[in-house]
């Protein structure tokens, strides 16, 4: 059955409309969870507010379980689902730079747009920074191209990498996440802080 648009069960014209509706859901949930506040987001790294950890991991796990169950019931063809390809060196380096950007700027791109939508000026400045950062990358791309393409493994899945089934992998991630949630809750008790 699914995914509906790639299989042309729903016309491709609808795809952008679907994107818009899904975006509304995404933005709404992010804002309701408190991701529009940089101080809440940064709280994870100081232990006083671990909402990022909780929302992020619960979200990833829910979608992961959803995909696996949908596939099990024959509702979705996993071979048509985009799995982002692994380029190990650029993924690590890019991740490190993004991590620095996260703790310095207090947002990530999705949350900054969400925060800007409710009037946070720091988020708008952050978005301006993203525009510049992408511009710098694009201009310097020819120098980094080799590095950008290095260590290509294609759309590799962790379950295949470890040689276990997707379901077992999901269970391991869930267990790890629940342990982290518990640690996060302990941290919040240890370094309590008023919410803003």
């Amino acid at each position: 059955m699914g995914p509906l648009v790639p299989q042309e069960i729903i016309g491709a014209d609808w795809n952008l409309f679907i994107a818009f509706v899904i975006g509304i859901g995404f933005g709404f949930v992010l804002e309701q969870a408190g991701f529009s506040s940089s101080r809440k987001l940064a709280g994870l790294f100081y232990g006083y507010d671990t909402v990022v950890l909780k929302v992020f991991f619960t979200g990833a796990i829910t979608a992961m379980l959803g995909l696996l169950f949908f596939s099990l019931f024959g509702w979705i063809d996993l071979s048509l689902i985009y799995v982002n390809p692994t380029f190990i060196w650029s993924a690590i380096t890019g991740g490190v730079i993004m991590g620095a950007g996260f703790i310095i700027g207090g947002f990530c791109p999705g949350t900054s747009v969400c925060a800007a939508a409710i009037g946070k000026i720091d988020a708008m400045v952050f978005i301006g920074g993203i525009l510049l950062g992408i511009f710098f990358f694009a201009e310097g791309f020819s120098f980094m191209k080799d590095f950008y393409m290095a260590g290509a493994y294609g759309p590799l899945k962790v379950s295949d990498f470890f040689g276990i089934s997707g379901g077992v992998m999901a269970l391991l991630v869930i267990i790890a996440a629940l342990v982290m949630f518990k640690l996060g809750e302990l941290a919040e008790k240890k370094w309590p802080r008023e919410e803003y």
């Binding site: 379980l65 024959g74 997707g166 999901a170």
Partner: peptide
């Protein structure tokens, strides 16, 4: 409730064989 739900679903999905049939 969510913790319990996640862990239960996780155990179920880990025990069932993967669907590898071509639709």
């Amino acid at each position: 409730i969510i913790f319990l739900g996640l862990i239960l679903l996780g155990i179920v999905i880990a025990m069932v064989p993967e669907n590898t049939t071509k639709p």
